[in-house]
Write a protein that binds this DNA or RNA. Structure first.
Lengths: 212, 212
DNA sequence: ATCGAAACGGAGGGGGAACTCCGGTTGAGG
DNA sequence: CCTCAACCGGAGTTCCCCCTCCGTTTCGAT
């Protein structure tokens, strides 16, 4: 509820609620098209409200970004838990990576936020840790089933996210196609096989600056 | 020679030559650190010259970018021809992708320019076509040798470039490590094997906006 | 040493973005 | 219906960027 002006007990006015909704919708659309760096003025204009009203509801860009993507991040985590619940861990593993890539590539803002959240770990922290543990457990099961190569590590998911974040194309359709093909290649590479050669060493992937 | 003020016959002044060199060096460093969008003012300050002098030598950002990366792009093409000359096409294929990834990940500006050049094909056009043909021939030989999967297509190289362009890390060392690991995974996925499943369809990858 | 063309660099116009101030407006409880 | 806190929105401030104009300085040929 950060950014909401009324501090204590009092139901917010209906026009304020209406404007808040319009801001969130416009911001969502603007972020999707142009990324989270889109100017606040553009968001306000798109919503048909004044710039001051936007800032009253969300004191800075970060709080707006947070509110917009909280929901989408939740559905993303839901996909992970769904995949982790699959009795066939390798099928779950593949499904998660495929879904993730599509979600990332169809929303430029989400791509940036998700990348920041997972690679940098600056925002949405508690959810991220839980998600990492769930993913690690899924990977462990897939390894135990002999389908995922044993030297797959947690940071390889970060690698997937970073690689997929580089995909783009003119139309959403083409971007999805490109992302699917990349995901298919990567999944193929992750699959256990008798002729494995050693992989290059695991990189140390620290925080990455996307927001500020 | 675009951007050089003296239109016809006359040897340039020594101070002009000196400043030109300083501009190119500073721009190279600035692009490497901050990407090609870095402000012209910063480049000029770094070179210790006035902003007007910068603009006199290079009338717009594009001509400066062109001049800075012409050399690096040439060495990149040299790597390709070297790889194409390898009697073992699969070894050449792998070496080229590995080298390419490292070059891309160690210079942010080059990453952006190279991505634009290869994905969009807007700049450095004639070189790009020749490079594409050379790469296609290398891939053909690698397929004929039974080492590269038959359904590998030209646009898969674009996929590699885009994926690798998403890699980043705190230190150059870590970025290289991450890039190496990604490249190893992709090469593994490209390798021919008896148990191939069909890949998702090839995406149509059109021009991509990086420079303006 | 002279002198003109060439090169230099700072000041400034124009634009856009982030964020704030404040006078006018409106919704909802009494 | 009245009132007033809550809300609205535009104008204004500051900052940084691109790029140009123009008075000053410097090179180098004579």
């Amino acid at each position: 509820m950060r950014g909401m002006p009324n501090e204590s007990s009092r139901k917010p006015r209906s026009d304020a609620l209406h404007n808040r909704r319009r801001i969130l919708d416009s911001a969502q659309a603007a972020f999707l098209e142009s990324g989270i760096e889109v100017s606040m003025t553009r968001i306000a204009r798109r919503a048909g409200i004044g710039i001051a009203t936007l800032y009253r509801h969300f004191p800075d860009r970060e709080s707006l970004v947070n509110e917009v993507f909280r929901g989408k991040l939740d559905t993303c985590l839901a996909r992970l838990y769904e995949a982790a619940a699959d009795p066939d861990p390798w099928r779950g593993f593949r499904a998660f990576i495929e879904d993730l890539c599509v979600m990332q590539v169809t929303d430029r803002g989400f791509n940036e936020v998700f990348r920041a959240a997972f690679v940098g770990g600056v925002i949405f922290d508690e959810q991220r840790i839980q998600a990492e543990n769930t993913f690690a457990e899924l990977a462990r099961r897939a390894k135990a089933a002999g389908r995922l190569r044993a030297d797959f590590v947690r940071d390889d998911l970060t690698l997937v996210i970073m690689a997929n974040s580089g995909i783009s194309a003119d139309t959403e359709e083409d971007a999805v196609a490109a992302s699917r093909r990349l995901a298919a290649y990567l999944i193929r590479a992750f699959e256990a096989a008798p002729d494995h050669r050693a992989l290059p060493p695991v990189p140390r992937l620290g925080p990455h600056p996307v927001l500020r």
